[in-house]
Write a protein that binds this DNA or RNA. Structure first.
Lengths: 330, 330
DNA sequence: CTGTTAGCGCCTTCAA
DNA sequence: TTGAAGGCGCTAACAG
């Protein structure tokens, strides 16, 4: 930078001002500096800038895993939104390991990043509160468990989506409707389950515990769970998979049993990840606004970074049913 | 850090040494410092460290997009391998925009990252060479076009895979075999095409230009291309999709036409992304060692970062056919 | 083995 | 509007 200053016949301070887009520089000076900068292809050292200004243009993003379409979609939109703010993402997959999250966050917050997006974190509310008290800005996205008041958070409305899915099945005339749940204790699982049961109840159908089986939100466990269901003396005529993976696994299980989807059994999923539309048959599912979730989270975070107040610390997004071909009248 | 030093009764330099795992510190001193560090939850500022030491623990990773299983797989393995070296990833999706790549790289190399992984870059060989001359360490992964000698690069062997796929179809008795290609000019497209044609020739089948159609490596264009093929007076009995997306699109097209896969038409893909196994029918495809590609690239890069020589600047990985249920005798 | 001494490259008051 | 000077927090010689 010194060289640029010398070549432009100004001081480093001025070069710094030009490079940072500071207003108090005369047009001529600015032009002169910019010419030299372009000519020599100069570019300021980010580490030095970060140290000196006490802030970086990096944002941390922790998430369980990358190679799941669900998270990839959030990651994609968040990264893009951040890019538009000239912010870069430091990627931190946690593999659902709480320990790793802690280590990563600890590193992230010490001078490396300006703030973070925590996708489905395993942090407890106390831990999050501590982070907050350290003055580190962050936004929780799609919390794994219920998040305490005052912690910025954007989440999907699981309940509404589950109601829509269940109603759809009921409207088609199904009465024996099974649910293949995800991990117990997760907010997504519990709220979807509540939506499922209360809708059944509302239609005068008593929830049957034998028709509620668990899985891990993966295709394989979804398949196994469906097989369990099909093996019952009175198998369900419809299955609500708590995510698309489960639903796809259930379709595979149905085929193994020689059952046609949707003629013999209707299947509905949740999330509407990319594979849902191209599955066979195309999956009826609940669309989650994943891209929007990423963008809104970035929005909240940048506001936090700018020290502006948040209009809402908690944003809840609506999801809606997308009817395709995996469901039919009972 | 000064505080820690004072509390531990040593100098900052010593604290620095302890924190950096430098060997020349007596066990007692080390313990004393570590106790204080833990007690106060101190953690060194990464920006300062980066500036001072002239190197960061960040690595840039550019790639076309995140939400494609193909890239997600590479990204995932690379991130994990980097994590094991205590290196973090700065994520830079380019959306295949050359301009954006340039801007991003320019930022990355100026103090922000220690080096980079360039997945399927649009940079020309001259541009890459320039980067190299700037002393910025990087490794190209799965190059879009042929990469010049001396530029570290790990790539799949497209040719071998295409030969395997084509041979498989020929062995099943198919003679009218179509190819749905990806973007023209891409290394992957050209080499797979060469493998396809030469295998046909080797079996005494003259490549028929009407049976070679293009696509963009996406599902939708794959579907459209397959439809074109099915509309021909003498439609093919087998289709080789140059990636799994194309193959999945072709399966959708087949269903639309009332053709059964594999009874009426065999379909083989390329890549073996996560969706291939769970497609219906499960897709016969060529498995690319995507995870391995990521790990090896990281391996090369860390060697570069450590200033060690590379055993091989160019690594080529083998791919192999995975036979599932989308192919059958003609 | 440990402390002292210079910076790393930039940003930011403060004066001019 | 511009320049001078100090410092951001840490590391890396070099002495001792």
């Amino acid at each position: 930078m010194q060289d640029v200053a010398a070549l432009a016949g100004v001081s480093m301070a001025t070069v710094s001002r030009v490079l940072s887009g500071h207003p108090d520089v005369s047009p001529e000076t600015r032009d002169a500096v910019q010419r030299i900068v372009r000519q020599y292809g100069f570019s300021k050292n980010r580490s030095a800038g970060a140290l000196s200004a006490g802030k970086t243009s990096l944002v941390g993003l922790t998430l369980p895993r990358i190679d799941a379409p669900y998270f990839a979609a959030i990651l994609d939109s968040a990264t893009e939104a951040l890019y538009e703010q000239d912010l870069r993402v430091v990627l931190c997959p946690t593999h659902h390991e709480h320990e790793r999250e802690i280590v990563l966050l600890e590193r992230l917050m010490h001078g490396m990043t300006a703030g973070a997006l925590l996708v489905m974190p395993h942090e407890s509310n106390e831990e999050l509160r501590t982070l907050q008290n350290h003055g580190y800005p962050f936004v929780v996205v799609d919390p794994l468990r219920s998040v305490a008041d005052g912690i910025p958070c954007v989440s999907p409305n699981h309940y509404i989506g589950a109601v829509a899915a269940t109603e759809h099945l009921i409207d088609l005339g199904h009465r024996r409707i099974a649910a293949i749940k995800g991990y117990d204790g997760w907010l997504a699982t519990e709220e979807r389950l509540t939506g499922f049961r209360s809708t059944l109840l509302g239609a005068g159908i008593a929830p049957d515990p034998r028709l509620e089986v668990s899985s891990d939100y993966g295709i394989e466990r979804g398949r196994e769970a469906a097989l369990l269901l099909f093996n019952q003396p009175e198998p369900p005529t419809a299955i609500f998979g708590f995510n698309d993976n489960i639903a796809i696994g259930a379709m595979i299980a149905a085929r193994e049993r020689g059952l046609r989807v949707p003629e013999d059994v209707s299947i509905v999923g949740f999330d509407d990840v990319v594979g849902a539309r191209t599955a066979f048959p195309p999956l009826t599912t609940v669309r989650q606004p994943l891209a929007e979730m990423g963008r809104i989270a970035v929005d909240l975070l940048t506001r936090l970074l700018d020290g502006k107040p948040l209009d809402a610390v908690r944003v809840e997004l609506q999801s809606k049913l997308v009817v395709r071909e995996s469901t039919a009248p009972a």
